[in-house]
Design a protein around this nucleic acid. Structure first.
Lengths: 340, 340
DNA sequence: TTGTAGGCGTTATCAC
DNA sequence: GTGATAACGCCTACAA
């Protein structure tokens, strides 16, 4: 089924059908109605490939996700969902592309084959070769997270550094002196994963500023790792009375380790962090946390990308989100057992 | 950058470049090398839209997922990941399309606009209008799950009916007389969600066959619902000593409710089910369950779809998977308190 | 072994 | 208000 067939059946030329559809030229109501009728009858829709070839754009965006074998975190999943939603609203399709070495061909297909009009890049590293590749190819893109030198690129990120700092301050205000940071995995940090490194910085700065003693622990993104990590903290530094976490996937593990150690939250141990609202509320007791606005981020990323595609000469924009810390029930004054 | 430019710079005709790339005609090694050099230099890759237009296929498949607002279960996520992986292996791109009423335009774009060569449809209903739409459009598709009348369609599914039956048998063998089925949500059942309805049937049949008393409870896909559901079961039917579940997302809730009621698993209450391996192993104690082979299903679905696309006249194939029940630690003999 | 040319289905320019 | 036609970039049948 193509536009020629519609034209024939409606007794008009192909261009008239095209214009009736696009509205870029006036078409008499009668003709338009006749055409529409044929179209409805045959479920006609312009062939996407032909249109893309002619217009030089695909009406599709690429979403590059972390290698899905290492499972997506809840936050990332929410983000993907919101990108899908926002794209759908804007009549854009989404080509999902896994990242990682084994998928490099897929990435190149996407970019060099011009399968998409623009790309949203998740889980960016401080130094990221994909950013260079996209730049070189002249493909519009928005990164989630930002590189070490994000000048000239469009991005959306969460201010992990500032948020972790505020978490530490909150603990300091409540009398905690020895606190831990439960970060993402050592591998990710070594690999230059921005949020982890910025959490690290924010923690170190705040600990120094408020005169606390801080211990940083990396932790893989799953419950067993969280369990082991908390156990280690309790063993190695029993003086620690509170922890800041940016590792939502490990939360269920924290719960188990604390319970096993006979520590109640928040009476014996305070926990605060940055997490998806879902996980924060799922924790028992509900976790005091800065809720990562993943849904908003997805929508913003699509919005920015759309602007960028529409005007490639536009000045780069970015968004550093700093959601408020929701006070729930996982933080209290420091236990005073060891003090005085 | 297009094929003509490459041809010019390599001093050959466009067709020679095309043939050098496709290998469908012999090209002298020297010419080939010269062409390859220019291609590497310019990062040339054939324009996907032009190629799709000419060849009549897009080298892209569509993956239609449940509305992502109602979040994906772990199993579904695993499935999406494995489809992505398998497609990537086969040099296919994946267009992710959300399902649901508000996204109907996106679905039609996909199908009628011929943006994809074939579609994988997740979370099929017993009566599913999308199946009819795909059929009508002559678009190859594979469903995950099968409709009430799946004759002539390609599908992959898990034998929920049989598996739930085997779970009940296992409980019966261990002396349980009063058992519950914790199913998916009432809404999904009312909506004709196959796995839920087939679990229902399998449960009813097996309960009758082994002379047990069975109680079926619907339960939404999240922890709080699981908590509430188990509490209800314990209240309404204290005689129940074991439950079969097909609702993995609610498992953490079961844990909480049982713990609160002072019931130990499996000493006081046995639990068995069908779930993603991840959730089964995450449960405490590890859940005896048929582990849904989501990864295998994704790969098989892509494989089937590829065959179907390659030969549209091929006889429909399907796959009804029945993974073994892994004995873990959540089932024991019925407690005998109330008996004798 | 290589070159020429037509057409895939659209959109948009030009002509009426 | 509408029709004819060129072009988007590629693949491939045909010609040399």
């Amino acid at each position: 089924m193509n536009i020629g067939e519609i034209a024939k059946r409606a007794g008009v030329s192909r261009s008239t059908v095209s214009y009736a559809l696009s509205g870029k030229r006036h078409v008499s109501p009668e003709t338009k109605a006749r055409i529409q009728q044929v179209i409805d009858e045959l479920d006609y829709r312009p062939n996407a490939a032909a249109r893309a070839l002619k217009e030089g754009r695909t009406r599709t965006i690429g979403l590059v996700i972390p290698p899905p074998v290492r499972r997506l975190t809840y936050m990332q999943l929410e983000f993907v969902a919101s990108v899908l939603e926002a794209a759908s609203q804007a009549d854009l399709d989404v080509l999902l592309s896994p990242s990682g070495d084994t998928h490099a061909p897929a990435f190149s297909r996407l970019i060099d084959g011009r399968r998409v009009d623009g790309v949203i890049l998740m889980e960016i590293r401080l130094q990221d070769p994909r950013v260079d590749q996209l730049r070189k190819a002249g493909m519009p893109f928005v990164t989630i997270g930002h590189t070490a030198h994000p000048e000239g690129v469009w991005w959306v990120d969460v201010d992990y550094q500032g948020l972790v700092g505020r978490c530490v301050k909150h603990l300091a205000d409540l009398g905690h002196r020895d606190v831990a940071l439960i970060n993402r995995s050592a591998e990710m940090l070594a690999d230059g994963y921005g949020p982890g490194l910025r959490a690290q910085q924010g923690f170190a700065q705040a600990v120094a500023q408020y005169g606390l003693t801080g211990f940083e622990y990396p932790c893989a993104d799953d419950a067993p790792a969280g369990d082991a990590c908390v156990e280690r903290i309790l063993n190695e530094h029993p003086e620690v009375t509170a922890a800041v976490t940016v590792n939502e996937s490990a939360l269920p593990g924290f719960q188990r380790a604390l319970q096993r150690a006979g520590l109640r939250v928040p009476a014996d141990f305070s926990l605060i962090g940055v997490a998806a609202q879902h996980w924060a509320e799922e924790f028992q007791p509900p976790l005091t946390s800065a809720d990562v606005p993943a849904v908003q981020m997805g929508a913003e990323a699509v919005q920015l990308l759309t602007e960028y595609i529409a005007d490639r000469a536009a000045a780069p924009k970015h968004l550093l989100l700093s959601p408020p810390i929701s006070l729930r029930d996982s933080v209290s004054r420091a236990r005073t057992l060891e003090r005085d």
